[in-house]
Computed example of a mutant assay.
Amino acid sequence: MSRRESAFDKVLDRSLVGGYTNLGYLLRRLGSHDDPAPGSLAGRRALVTGAGTGLGEATALGLARLGATVHLVGRTTERVGPAIERIRARLEKEGGAPPHLVAEACDVSDLRDVRRFARDIEERLAEDASSLDVLVHNAGTLPAARETSADGHELTLATHVLGPVLMTELLRPALRRSEAGARVVLVSSGGMYAQPLPLDDPEYLAGTYRGATAYARSKRIQVELTPVLAERLAGDGVAVHAMHPGWADTPGVATSLPVFRLLTRPLLRTGRQGADTVVWLAATEPPPPAGLFWHDRVPRPTSYRSATAAGDEERQAMWEWVRAALPELG
């Protein structure tokens, strides 16, 4: 598949049902020959947050299938233990080599816990000069009512923006040691297309709180900060990407959007289909260009309406707000 959006692909993407469902995935995969090579991540190390179920588990499976050592991160190690067993059983059934999987605990919304976790894993990796080659920020939340994190930040903002940015910053030494050039992937959402960058109210303090809106706003921030992060880490040899998986049938969708799932279930993607672009971004060669927003292995526009488009000044202003919230960014 070309890495440029064809006319047919553009029609699929704009139609939503044609592009975001399993139909779009299957149509785009017809005749495709750009899958990562078997064993392409052998000897490399990956870390996936929110890896206990759904897209995170599917991503961990895909990376392990390509030979990576995978650290599966959940709020507790018990939350990822069953996923590890399912992945091992799946790869054993496929006849692959026994995977090297590591259970990790970190609440990504809790900045103190992110600091503790990043310090711990960096110390462990530094002992034998190991690197971190792939970092996938997949942990997500969609609260029904406004909640705050342990640090007092709105929960979706803390989970999708502040925690991932802080973790990436603190893991830069391990990412920098990657001889192959590390890759960071932010798992976003096509729902962000409905929202502009919330510069005037990042914490969602004004108006009537809606979980789906908060989710989309935080995902918009993720996507708009991707080129800023890509530029920041380029000197370390680290590429930063954002992507959205389309409409995938995950436990999170079942819990947070039951009516949507009921109406669309026959068209929802499997976890593997939703995670496909994450695994591709992590492993494909030559490396994809950094700082872009991907869906089904093709870079997509970040906005389709002028009302939601952000310019460089708006992105920089959002970055300055994040910097003020995270002293480690300097």
Rank of each mutant, 00 (worst) to 15 (best):
P258L: 03
Y193C: 11
Q316T: 15
T255R: 14
P266N: 09
M167R: 07
R75M: 02
L27R: 06
A180Q: 14
R4L: 14
L26H: 13
S189C: 07
R14Y: 06
F260E: 11
A230N: 07
H153L: 11
G81S: 13
L66T: 08
R112Y: 04
A150S: 14
A105P: 01
R305A: 13
P164H: 05
M1Q: 14
L257T: 09
I87C: 02
R75T: 10
F260A: 13
F260L: 10
S15F: 01
H33I: 13
A158G: 07
A182H: 03
P287F: 03
Q316Y: 04
G191C: 04
Y204F: 15
V259T: 12
A64Y: 00
P251K: 02
S15P: 01
P202N: 10
Q195D: 10
W321D: 11
G181A: 04
F8C: 12
V102C: 06
T308H: 09
R265W: 05
D296F: 01
A180H: 08
D13N: 14
E328P: 00
V279D: 09
E127Q: 13
E104C: 12
D13V: 14
E224L: 09
E231N: 09
D276P: 06
A182E: 10
E313Y: 00
L166A: 06
V259H: 03
D120A: 15
T270W: 00
D276I: 05
V322A: 06
H244C: 10
R29T: 11
I121C: 08
T226Q: 07
E285V: 12
L16E: 15
R297W: 08
D113A: 09
L233P: 00
T264N: 15
A317V: 11
A212Y: 09
A216M: 11
M318L: 10
L27N: 05
R86A: 08
H137D: 12
H33G: 14
D236E: 12
D201K: 10
L225E: 07
E154G: 05
T156N: 04
G191Y: 00
E104P: 07
T226P: 02
N138H: 05
G43I: 07
L267G: 08
E57Q: 10
R124W: 00
V114Y: 00
R14T: 13
E57L: 09
P196I: 11
D200E: 15
Y209W: 04
H244W: 01
V102E: 11
N138R: 06
A310W: 01
G140R: 01
L225G: 05
V70D: 04
A174E: 06
P299C: 08
T213I: 15
F293Y: 15
P251N: 02
A174S: 15
G62P: 03
E231F: 03
A317H: 08
V134P: 04
L229V: 08
D113C: 03
T168W: 00
R65H: 11
L175C: 06
A310E: 12
F293C: 13
L186S: 14
A68G: 03
R146D: 08
T159G: 05
W247A: 14
